[in-house]
Design a protein around this nucleic acid. Structure first.
Lengths: 184, 184
DNA sequence: TTGATTAGGAAACAATCATTCCCTATTATC
DNA sequence: GATAATAGGGAATGATTGTTTCCTAATCAA
């Protein structure tokens, strides 16, 4: 079932919600029409499940990137680098389902909007936590405003996905090098 | 005709391309079905025209925001502030047609993708120009990497539109205050 | 082995979509 | 003032959509 959901994630990321037909879904999930409707109430429910799956996978990837840092500053640096890498290449062209949901659905779909804002706030408080950790271990100055900087970095990461989907090249080292000035 | 296009811009921004039906378009443009197809070849052509109109209006707004600054740094600061303001409130909830096109269409529509990348690059070189202007007039240090910083700021502005569409509150003064560290 | 229950697949369905066609005013031309 | 030309409007059309229904095959219990 998770492998079928991964297929749904892939096609929803690439085409978005409305441009993905049930035919696209059945092909990507390797399931027949009836089977999809036996497992999910409707297309919207498939999307919600794909959203949750995507969020769980990305959360794990981000946490593990952070874990490779020795202090708060390095952990945050690794998170940003990970975001740039995931916003590039074939995965970048495919796109992020959170950004896609925010842009395509959040205006008219309160259920999706709630998931999107929850996801953004979760990521934001994770970043704010890393900043405070860095301030505690001495790798980030205390005068850095954790909450404001975290919100700015969320904007940055979401923007990376937009620019990456448009296929502009992103140099991780250079971009993150500049972004780390925000922690000065 | 421009007033009809403004209606198309409004509905395309809010709902995106695929979720906007011809009925939505005719209502927003105050034109009947046949009239729309007399003025444009098809829905795709309406979208392209709306995109161009949106880009022209936004370009003017951004240039005029920059013009209110006394030096390069202030001009850039005003541009960022203008972006935050436009990403907030009712206009922020409505969304940006460039971001929407990048996320919803650029993966499978080469024509739209070309317009999106052209728009992003134009904005990016405008920002890079402001940075160089600031370095010339002494308001921005010379060690700032103009191109890398400009690309990062483009990511930031696009991300602001994503976050704003998800209706997270954005404090212009605080966010831009943090972002200006990038020019240190 | 037999019977019952479930997962999976394909065709049929109703609704909605983008598009076309034709009709009616209105304007401009001679 | 009559006629040609054009802009605008709304109903009809064919294709595509999401959804349902029914059938087949597989799995498990007794």
């Amino acid at each position: 079932m998770d492998t079928a959901l991964d297929g749904a994630v892939r096609v929803f990321c690439e085409r978005g919600y409305h441009a993905t037909s049930i035919g696209d879904l059945t092909a990507a999930m390797r399931l027949a029409t009836g089977s999809v409707y036996k497992a999910f109430r409707d297309k919207h429910a498939v999307f919600l499940a794909a959203f949750e799956r995507y969020a769980a996978v990305r959360r794990e990837q981000t946490r593990s990137a952070a874990a490779r840092g020795a202090n708060g500053r390095e952990q945050l640096c690794n998170v940003l680098l990970s975001y740039v890498e995931h916003s590039q290449g074939s995965e970048g062209r495919r796109g992020c389902i959170v950004v896609g949901s925010a842009v395509e659905l959040s205006a008219l779909d309160p259920v999706i909007r709630a998931r999107v804002t929850a996801q953004l706030k979760s990521n934001e408080s994770f970043i704010a936590g890393l900043i405070r950790e860095g301030q505690a271990d001495g790798s980030i100055p205390h005068h850095v405003e954790a909450d404001d900087t975290a919100r700015l970095m969320i904007c940055l990461t979401q923007g990376l996905r937009v620019v990456g989907k448009a296929r502009l090249p992103l140099d991780g080292e250079r971009l993150v090098g500049v972004a780390m000035k925000l922690l000065a």
